[in-house]
Amino acid sequence: MNSPNRNMAIVRAVREQKRSPSKVAKHFGISRQRVYQILNAFDAGGAQAVAPKSRAPHTHPQAVPDKLRADIVTIRRQLTRHGLDAGPETIAFHLERDGKRSPSTSTIRRILAKEGLISPEPKKKPKSSFIRFEAAMPNECWQADITHIFLADGTRVDVLDFLDDHSRYLLSITAASAFTGPQVAAELTRLITTYGPPASTLTDNGLVFTARLAGRKGGRNAFEKVLYTYKIQQKNGRPGHPQTQGKIERFHQTLKKWITARPPAKTIGELQEQLDEFRDYYNIHRPHRALGRRSPHHSYTTGPKASPSDNPKQEWRTRNDIVWDNGKVTVRYAGKLFHLGIGRAFKRQKVLMVIADNHVITSLAETGEVITEHYIDTARDYQRPYWKQGDPPQGTK
């Protein structure tokens, strides 16, 4: 039988192989006196007496006390039950906030794993491998997106949110059965009025955010018109590449985890109350790991803010149409369809419209004669002509 006990090997070399203590001492690199001590100990107590002794210290000053271990497990379970982040870094924060000693995050992770509260993920990509992109100042970039949450009866509800890239401050979060382009633009305008215009926005390529993948049939949509008005730079992620909007995508995980831990809302109004409660917790009370455990509200409200510096180009496009019998044509502006009065005298005639933002000049396609000029007023559907056929008025509108 093989034995890892060196002392027993020494005993057997002398007693069973009949080798001299001097040769055995030389073979094992110890003194002859040590060989005799091992033999005497074996004679007195048998194999157990010469078994290797542990070199571990009798006391462990740095060991985590049982009470602290229990606190770590309790905090983990409480945070998880309420749908909150419950990682080792968050647990360490709560321990320090309560005036308790916090072990290293690796020690907390081992305690949680031993209790069966987390599972190792060896294939998970380490966070150190990610390349981080973060705006340097508040209002340097706002991320916006639309996700969905289900009510108690299974009804799907859209949730629109705006997040400041630098501070992670949740500027707004709104629930609705669905969002149109003008609704999203109206919310952006409200936020600009409240917080000031950002230097840029970052969104996906949804039609409520950009018309660039729609063949530009209607020019800029309502969201893009607001950006143009305030000289805000527009950024869009590459189609099929949500990692570009990584912060707001990760934010949605936090949101849905928090929502799932509560009874499902029965109505959109009830869901909005939950979202308002979450916004208050997320902005003010929740420590953010990426912000050095500061709150988004603290990071957003301290220090200077960025402002727009983009100089967007004027939008030029043309449209061919036929005047209806009622003397009108249509044109899409800021994502909405408007009716332009041309005059019944031109019914069923082909016209060419040259459009520069909200300024439209209409001419007969066959002769090139300019017959009307319009300035689109988004507050009304029907657009009266600024002037009709003949010499244009002096000056500008």
Rank of each mutant, 00 (worst) to 15 (best):
E89I: 06
F223I: 08
N205M: 07
V50K: 03
H241G: 00
K328S: 00
K256D: 04
G196Q: 10
I192F: 09
T267N: 07
A49R: 10
R294V: 04
G206D: 12
I75K: 02
N5W: 11
A290W: 01
Q183S: 11
F133N: 11
A214S: 15
R289L: 08
D325V: 01
E140W: 04
P312Q: 04
P197K: 14
A265V: 06
L352C: 02
A222Y: 12
L171I: 15
I173D: 05
L151A: 05
L160R: 08
P287R: 07
Q78E: 14
K397Y: 14
G45Q: 12
A135W: 10
K347M: 11
Y230K: 07
K350Q: 11
R344Q: 15
G116L: 08
P392L: 05
P197Y: 06
K247E: 02
G218F: 13
G83E: 12
P88L: 00
D161G: 11
E249G: 03
S128T: 14
Q33A: 13
T362W: 13
Y300P: 01
D71Y: 06
T362Y: 11
H288M: 01
R250H: 07
P61T: 06
E96Q: 15
K127P: 02
T105G: 01
A13I: 13
A356M: 14
E270S: 08
R81M: 05
Y281S: 02
K235G: 01
F209I: 07
A86V: 06
Y36A: 00
T180W: 06
K123R: 13
A175M: 12
K67V: 14
H27W: 13
Y386A: 08
F150P: 00
H94L: 08
